[in-house]
Design a protein around this nucleic acid. Sequence first.
DNA 1: CAGCTGGATGGGAGCGCTCCCAAACTTGAT
DNA 2: ATCAAGTTTGGGAGCGCTCCCATCCAGCTG
Lengths: 345, 345
Amino acid sequence: MAVGRRGLGRDGRPTLEQVAARAGVGRGTVSRVINGSPRVSDRTRAAVEAAIADLGYVPHRAARALAANRTDAIALVVPEPEARLFAEPYFSAIIRGVSAELADTDYQLLLTLSRTPKERQRFAQYAAGNRVDGVLLVSVHGEDPLPELLGQLGIPAVMNGRRSADEPFPHVDCDNVAGAQLAVEHLLGRGRRVVATITGPLDMYAAWCRLAGYREALEAAGHEDDDSLVWRGDFTEESGYHGMRELLERRPDIDAVFCASDLMAAGARRALREAGRTVPGDVALVGFDDSAIARHMDPPLTSVRQPIEGMGRAMARALLAEIDEGMPIHRHQVLPTELVRRGSS
Amino acid sequence: MAVGRRGLGRDGRPTLEQVAARAGVGRGTVSRVINGSPRVSDRTRAAVEAAIADLGYVPHRAARALAANRTDAIALVVPEPEARLFAEPYFSAIIRGVSAELADTDYQLLLTLSRTPKERQRFAQYAAGNRVDGVLLVSVHGEDPLPELLGQLGIPAVMNGRRSADEPFPHVDCDNVAGAQLAVEHLLGRGRRVVATITGPLDMYAAWCRLAGYREALEAAGHEDDDSLVWRGDFTEESGYHGMRELLERRPDIDAVFCASDLMAAGARRALREAGRTVPGDVALVGFDDSAIARHMDPPLTSVRQPIEGMGRAMARALLAEIDEGMPIHRHQVLPTELVRRGSS
DNA sequence: CAGCTGGATGGGAGCGCTCCCAAACTTGAT
DNA sequence: ATCAAGTTTGGGAGCGCTCCCATCCAGCTG
């Protein structure tokens, strides 16, 4: 019986129909008001809005999604291992940024930690099947098929970071090169002459950039390229420790070190202490990430800060633009980094 | 025209109808297979499953939600300020736990950072309106109306932590009392005689518990209650620093300190260094949280670790039970804490 | 062998909304 | 006053699924 068309929703909540009845208009009109269509007279709009307020009407998401073929939801996909190892507050800062940007919209944030690469692959199907309006990708590695998969499926997506200098995929990154330059210029500016660096794994583009920034800054200051001052680490504390020992052995005249992560700087600090070098007296130290560790080292570590929350916001903005304008204007964004000066340099 | 009943979904994805046609059965039967109903013969089930695989069918979430009046989604609600200040990896560890537990189910994790208390209040309406099957609450403060609101609305919910000893709301917490006891017993076991403590803000139940644990351990060891050994901090580093200075002045004979957070321990460490006391030589130090800061202090800080990820899992499990069994068996769970020994004690 | 029982099956109805077309009403020019 | 052109409005159809009832078919019983 098509009579049921009148009652409250199954769970007692008012429906569109109810609001329409109350306002003395048709369903279509209420729908138009809710969706901000201009084709409604002011009188009617006011009446409908009053009815909505009276009834405490809230649109039913699922019904809406079904009828309109959209979901008002975007997914944030993080590989499980990253969530574990992320420079501590990175993960939550990204979420905070995204969330802040989404707060003014009707979008929901869906969280997906994908454990295995396989799960990651299945996510594309899932995304299409369950209808997510868009996807935010964090920490994408070189071999990850997800970006391309999403591209093929025509699902709007934005990633955090880049996989290479000419990353084609829409992304938001921070300026690692400039950050490293800042760090090294600062060191040189404080009168340091022999500046070494401990790099991240160079197959990661961010690590590569930080090394590039280090080199550029030295070159700009007229220093010659000197490989004996570069040690290749892997972002772990251990690699920072070993790297520092090695560097000290190779070049006892080192008076400054730029570490591509705070964690490595912590390792380097330990090695320096063991070697009897003071910080910043004998050797000045600068890290990257501006993590909690940096703030609590002894002395507190000068470090390059990334605008993590800002990246989250930018990603969300770009994605929303891509979703409802078809194509974002800023497909590629690089946000500035900043040097936070502390006692270690 | 009711003929449309046959094609692919609007966006080209197969629908239930399609699968039914392909398998040569009715919609109802396919639905039954998908939902694991036992009232399907093995033959039919196999045929349907084959059709599903062939077509790469994925149920349409919104349609399902609309028809079945459930959402297969649960929300994790975090007050915005907490997401910022959380003992670093706390937030992500909770998410990891929840996410891991949800991975085997069809539930989606919705993330909500609520900025203002008002927003928080509105969330209840939102939750009801948008249909979330359940809610996970993190960091609930005393005045927060959300738990009660959700209770009234009959929305299943579980919170992390407790607001008081007899928290009526379903919750998962860790054993702060036992953790503190562990710490103090350890200190006493290493021969320390004068054990002080720097507490958190005592209107927070967790902080109160840690103080209680401290007292119990001392009492059990035959020490008398001595207020001159207790300093009330607020979990910040500054309060740790000032507390330590104060304590040292009051009781220069202190040879051990239990801090209710690693951050305060870091502050205390600084004060000790300034006072010329060595750690652990003159004074042994134990923290709480086992954060990154603890691991990177000099010397590394002995600390009490909470099973954060485990709490996340437990919360998810409890919530799921509450959702589909009506009432969870374990409405109140308290997980054990653990002492991580390092160089500071 | 009719009659019954119980499990398997098909499909109508309906969830609450948006889309869109046709109807109703305006407005302004003739 | 008349008509064309535009604006506002109502409501049918349908989104893809679950629920549930009527139907069908075996297997038994007497």
